[in-house]
């Protein structure tokens, strides 16, 4: 790790000032579970580190009647262990529990993971499936971006220089909704070789009134599997298998390494889409 200056702002305002003052020389530190390892490997060598963990108000997870708010600095464990989330939106704690290991979940943050946008991270799939809104503070004030507009490419998001992700907002799913996250862990790192998050709401007939599917690990950025959703809306569980076959429609480039080929990841995306949707429908019923 190369030497750097360390700043631990207490307020978002001072954090913003630091971020803008140091520009590209600075890295923002959340839980540190992506940044610190890459600094140790000297893949990142910022001259300034701005630690957000002391910023007031960014760690809170609240589950209201209509909205779930997750502060960007909330840890994975805070989501995993939240008392109200299993009943309000089980997909969130289920995804959290699939990340890394207990120590990593204690320290790693939801916002850090989302902003880092590792192509194999778990949260992006779930955020897409829940149609999350990301609140971003920037030099020109606040803005909100939908998850579906946020994940752009390999480690690239809609987050602009000088901006900080502050909060994730998710609408509490309606009655008769269910979600599921299914992944295959890369056997060494635990990241997703493929991971699929599905959230459905059923109508009175037991058919899908709404379907959202997020896929991670497969393409350079996590994506919404719109073709699957379109094929399943208005249909029941019997249509899941056919719908899941569309899980990689429109994907032009697949992630590929010695752990898994693109073909295999695409296959897993289809299998897990089917499994996640079946479970989600099951839970919604």
């Amino acid at each position: 790790m190369t030497p750097f200056d360390y700043h631990a702002p207490k307020t978002l305002r001072s954090a913003m000032r630091l971020v803008q003052a140091f520009g590209d020389d600075a890295k923002v530190l959340a839980g540190g579970h992506s940044l610190i390892p890459s600094m140790k490997l000297r893949l990142a060598a910022p001259s300034v580190v701005i630690d957000l963990s002391g910023v007031a108000g960014l760690k809170r997870v609240t589950a209201g009647n209509e909205t779930i708010s997750i502060g960007a600095l909330a840890t994975h464990y805070a989501v995993e262990s939240h008392r109200l989330l299993p009943s309000k939106c089980s997909l969130l704690p289920e995804t959290a529990a699939e990340i890394g290991d207990a120590q990593v979940r204690n320290r790693g943050t939801v916002g850090g993971s989302i902003a880092h946008a590792d192509p194999a991270a778990d949260w992006p799939a779930t955020m897409l499936a829940l149609d999350a809104q990301f609140d971003i503070a920037g030099p020109d004030g606040e803005r909100a971006v939908a998850a579906s507009d946020f994940f752009v490419d390999l480690f690239i998001t809609d987050l602009q220089p000088g901006e900080i992700l502050t909060q994730i907002r998710i609408a509490v799913p309606a009655e008769c909704s269910g979600g599921a996250y299914v992944k295959m862990r890369q056997s060494a790192s635990g990241f997703a070789l493929a991971g699929v998050a599905a959230q459905v709401t059923l109508d009175d007939a037991g058919n899908c009134a709404s379907v959202a599917v997020g896929v991670t690990g497969v393409a350079p950025a996590a994506y919404r599997a719109h073709a699957v959703e379109d094929a399943l809306v208005g249909q029941g569980i019997d249509a899941v298998a056919d719908a899941a076959a569309h899980a990689t429609d429109g994907v032009e480039e697949f992630q590929e390494d010695h752990h898994a080929s693109g073909d295999y990841r695409a296959h897993l995306a289809r299998v897990f889409t089917q499994r996640a949707l079946s479970q989600a429908i099951d839970r919604a019923a």
Binding site: G32, I36, D51, S53, Y77, Q103, V104, N106, R107
Partner: peptide, 18 residues
């Protein structure tokens, strides 16, 4: 691994200043 404010953490991934 050590306990930091009651949470088990990997102390190779935490700065002392944190």
């Amino acid at each position: 691994s050590v306990m930091l404010n009651g949470d088990a953490v990997k102390s190779c991934t935490v700065l002392a200043v944190q």
